[in-house]
């Protein structure tokens, strides 16, 4: 089964064609550059850009796949959670496409997309490398790579989410915890801005931290005791205070501050993920979202868990259409709950 899938929940416009929930035939993503100027996402700007970019990207995906629309079996689009104006563009385009082509329309929860990014591999159909590199986490994923074993604990961390999810089986999710204030990626963005680094902050902090001492400055751990929820605003405030103090003293050792911040945030994320994995006796841990590309985070989690860790390659960690196509396939295969078709900016997991 081939699904043409659309993602427009935040600031990436993505269209992909995915076969049987795993094989990426085409995956086109356009990042919105306008937000690099503002250093944050302006919802109205994001929605305008999606509308401009979506149809050309859909055409590009079909070209990359060497396919025509009539060779597709279903249309999928993210219907939430996300920025309402942005979601509406992708979902209405997708519903129009589906109605006009007499194909089923599958609404997808964006978070489930991040989960199912761990099922995807590229098959070299589009001139890219055969198999999907895992960014220093072992051999490339191929058709032979086994699917992650369930149940699993999933940590989705990006500029928009910090969610800890228990996946009991296909389409059976339970939210264990989430951020009560900033998303993890936002904390990276804000600290990066504070240190005069670029946007998005995740890769910038990781690069800057490479030469730094992670134990240079003690910072509060970004967590709440007893619960699986996260809180990053206290850590952010502590970094702000630290930087102001260092500035007053005349010098900010950027590498040391970046490394100390990165350590504090990754330890909190890793600790809760590992604790959830142990408590629920899961058979694997999955990561998703842009911050999952952070190498120290992955190493920190792997060090603390006894089960395999799955991380999509960086390109599939950030928002993309292929993950929506994967989630849509498993929605259709495991119809345990109703498939949504209406857009909601807040949407619970299935």
């Amino acid at each position: 089964m081939r699904i043409l899938s659309i993602e427009t929940s935040c600031d990436e416009t993505g269209v992909a064609i995915v076969e049987d929930g795993r094989r990426i035939i085409a995956n086109v993503v356009a990042s919105q550059t306008a937000h690099q100027v503002t250093g944050g996402i302006v919802p109205e700007v994001a929605a305008r850009e999606h509308l401009r970019a979506l149809d050309p990207i859909e055409q590009q995906a079909l070209r990359d796949a060497g396919m025509e629309l009539r060779q597709v079996d279903a249309i999928a689009a993210t219907v939430g959670p996300g920025l309402i104006g942005a979601l509406l563009v992708g979902a209405n385009y997708g519903r129009g496409l589906a109605l006009a082509s007499s194909l089923p329309f599958v609404g997808v929860n964006h978070l489930e997309g991040h989960v199912y990014a761990n099922w995807l591999y590229e098959d070299g159909a589009v001139g890219g490398p055969r198999g999907t590199t895992t960014g220093g986490l072992g051999p490339p994923r191929t058709p032979q790579t086994p699917e992650p074993e369930l149940p699993a604990v999933v940590l989705v961390v990006s500029g928009a989410h910090s969610d800890l999810v228990l996946m009991e089986g296909h389409r059976r999710f339970r939210l264990l915890g989430r951020t009560i204030d900033d998303a993890a990626g936002e904390a990276f963005d804000k600290v990066a801005r504070l240190l005069g680094l670029g946007f998005p902050g995740g890769p910038e902090i990781e690069r800057a931290a490479r030469g730094g001492d992670p134990k240079a400055y003690p910072l509060p751990k970004a967590w709440l005791a007893d619960r699986y929820d996260f809180s990053f605003s206290g850590l952010k405030t502590a970094v702000l205070r630290l930087v102001r103090t260092l500035e007053a003293a005349g010098d900010v050792p950027v590498a040391d501050v970046a490394a100390s911040f990165q350590r504090a945030i990754t330890e909190a994320l890793a600790e809760k993920t590992a604790r959830a994995a142990a408590e629920h006796g899961v058979r694997s841990v999955l990561l998703g979202g842009g911050v999952a590309a952070n190498l120290p985070l992955r190493e920190e989690i792997r060090r603390r868990i006894a089960v395999p860790l799955h991380v999509p390659p960086p390109r599939l960690c950030t928002d993309n259409g292929a993950m929506i196509g994967a989630a849509a396939f498993f929605s259709l295969r495991h119809r345990t709950t109703e498939i949504p078709s209406l857009v909601r900016s807040n949407m619970p997991l299935a």
């Binding site: 935040c10 996402i41 959670p81 996300g82 009560i180 204030d181 936002e186 929820d229 809180s231």
Partner: peptide, 18 residues
Amino acid sequence: TFAQPFAPPPRDDLALGL
């Protein structure tokens, strides 16, 4: 700017131990 599209609004009273 709208830098926090998904997370609920911050509640300091929930930020225990910070």
